[in-house]
């Protein structure tokens, strides 16, 4: 802590004058940025709608309740589709992500100069693009249906699993690898005996975690035509059948809660 002098007396100050100035300037900059962004963003906003929103909310709320309970019969098959989309998509993602992770980890990549940057780019691309956008694209390319959803989930999962897995690979204990190498083991054997056992728990945890997230995501992919609950949601929204929408929301909520519980239990069991 700096000690300044005022009128010859030492005075304790929390920060130096320069640091204080920088801090204030920083805050001021942040506030200015916020105000500016706010103005740009709200330029096109029609405030009448915003003022009207509470009334709208009450209106929609009253139409949403009560949920149409009987509709659940029609939701069971889409729910099954949604679960399959999430699970198969996760499997696809895992299959694609594992090699990418090994290429991206500094200690296992065969080439630091070429393959590693490519692998890292694949990871960041997959992470940047939400599965809904992947689905939008894939529906346009290969047509609507579960396949587009599965591939979309898979493509999005590469980045997530790949990133966490390659970080886990980079954190492994080098001495265990060294010890197995010293026995005369081949590359494959080193992988099997020294690297895989060390990352296996992390790998399982990451996969289950991603599966949990994928259940949430696959529930809405149908909005763009990739099948599952989202498809029903889209259909209900189109005809403004709010009680059905509520029912779909409840089903999604239930699924999310259950999958989160399962994933938490499994992760607990592994570690």
């Amino acid at each position: 802590m700096p000690v300044g002098k005022i009128a010859g007396q030492p005075v304790w100050q929390h920060r130096t004058p320069r640091a204080r100035l920088a801090l204030w300037a920083g805050w001021l900059g942040l506030v200015a940025l916020f105000v500016y962004c706010w103005q740009v963003m709200t330029e096109t906003t029609i405030w009448a709608f915003v003022h009207d929103a509470p009334a709208q909310a009450v209106d929609i709320g009253s139409r949403m309740l009560p949920p149409r309970w009987g509709y659940i019969e029609k939701l069971l098959l889409p729910l099954w589709d949604t679960l399959n989309m999430a699970t198969l998509g996760t499997l696809l993602g895992v299959i694609l992500a594992v090699p990418v992770a090994f290429l991206a980890a500094r200690n296992t990549t065969p080439s630091v100069m070429l393959l590693r940057p490519i692998a890292l780019f694949i990871i960041v691309s997959s992470r940047s693009i939400n599965s809904l956008i992947w689905a939008l694209l894939l529906v346009a390319i290969i047509g609507p249906g579960l396949l587009a959803g599965i591939v979309a989930i898979g493509l999005r999962s590469i980045g997530f699993i790949g990133k966490l897995l390659y970080e886990a690979i980079e954190e492994i204990d080098v001495s265990q690898v060294e010890a197995v190498t010293a026995t005369g083991a081949s590359r494959g054997q080193i992988m099997d005996y020294a690297i895989v056992p060390q990352i296996l728990p992390a790998f399982c945890g990451i996969t289950v975690f991603r599966w949990d997230i994928n259940i949430r995501e696959s529930a809405i992919l149908g909005l763009v035509g990739a099948g599952g609950l989202g498809l029903q949601l889209q259909a209900s929204l189109n005809v403004l059948a709010w009680p059905q929408v509520t029912m779909i929301f409840l089903v999604i909520l239930g699924t999310v809660v259950v999958s989160e519980w399962v994933s938490a239990k499994v992760r607990q069991a592994i570690t």
Partner: peptide
Amino acid sequence: ALVERLTVMENVLSGRLGYVPFWRSF
């Protein structure tokens, strides 16, 4: 420098890795 998540036996047998083909060790 044992591979901590493998069993004791697997650790000891890993001493033979240089002698056996990959499928056997796998």
